[in-house]
């Protein structure tokens, strides 16, 4: 009796595996990681060299806080160069980009988490925002701008998913990075944060 039961058990697993493997061979290829960004060497002594968006009034991605607004301690001119040669960037690199106004920040956490606290000036684009349509903010990203995406740090994959989705929609964007320490790292370091929902998230972003 037990033998018959085990045969049926194994049979179900074998048939399901065969169906799954056939689907895998015939179906779309799964992509777990985003493409690597282009290598950039940024002279922090000349932050003005970074291109800015044409019309800040119409482009929400340029609404990053100035150093005065955020009350931050900017990286001083002539402090050196910032090399971004990998997808993932550190807290120091993210802070340097933020302080010099070189990047737009995207928070990939769910809206509820974003509302509780987020990097000042960041936009809320969780992976679920791509389920039905393209989030508004993605259409407005300036290809010349660096985009830093973060979530809860650690082995959180939502930033990677958001970057991969953005790359699928706008392959011309090659300056997308993951801030690996995420919001806990940023807030833990005492850097500028804000609370409240993202108004653009309500309209698809």
């Amino acid at each position: 009796m037990i033998r018959s039961y085990l045969i049926k058990l194994v049979g179900i697993v074998v048939v399901a595996s065969a169906a799954g493997v056939t689907h895998m061979l015939l179906g779309p290829q799964i992509k777990l990681h985003p493409n690597d960004p282009e290598v950039q060497t940024i002279d922090l002594g000349a932050p003005d060299a970074a291109p800015a968006s044409a019309d800040p009034a119409e482009d929400p991605t340029t609404d990053q806080p100035t150093d005065a607004e955020a009350g931050s301690d900017p990286v001083p001119a002539g402090d050196g160069t910032l090399v971004l040669d990998s997808l993932e960037i550190s807290l120091e690199q993210a802070k340097a980009l933020y302080d010099n106004g070189l990047a737009d920040f995207i928070d990939a956490r769910p809206a509820a988490e974003y509302a509780k606290g987020h990097i000042y000036g960041s936009w809320n684009v969780p992976p679920s925002a791509f389920d039905r349509s393209t989030p508004t903010v993605v259409d407005l990203i300036d290809p010349d701008r660096i985009v830093v995406v973060y979530c809860t740090g650690g082995d959180c994959h939502d930033s990677h998913i958001v970057i991969r989705e953005i790359q699928e929609i706008r392959p011309e964007l090659t300056k997308l990075h993951v801030f690996t320490d995420g919001y806990p790292g940023w807030a833990g370091a005492g850097y500028e944060t804000d609370i409240g929902a993202d108004p653009f998230a309500e309209t698809g972003g």
Binding site: I12, V15, A16, A19, G20, V21, M24, G27, I30, L32
Partner: peptide
């Protein structure tokens, strides 16, 4: 992960 993503749903259905 890829194999599991394809096999698990078919196991559930079957």
């Amino acid at each position: 992960i890829t194999v599991a993503a394809y096999v698990m749903p078919w196991t559930e259905i079957l």
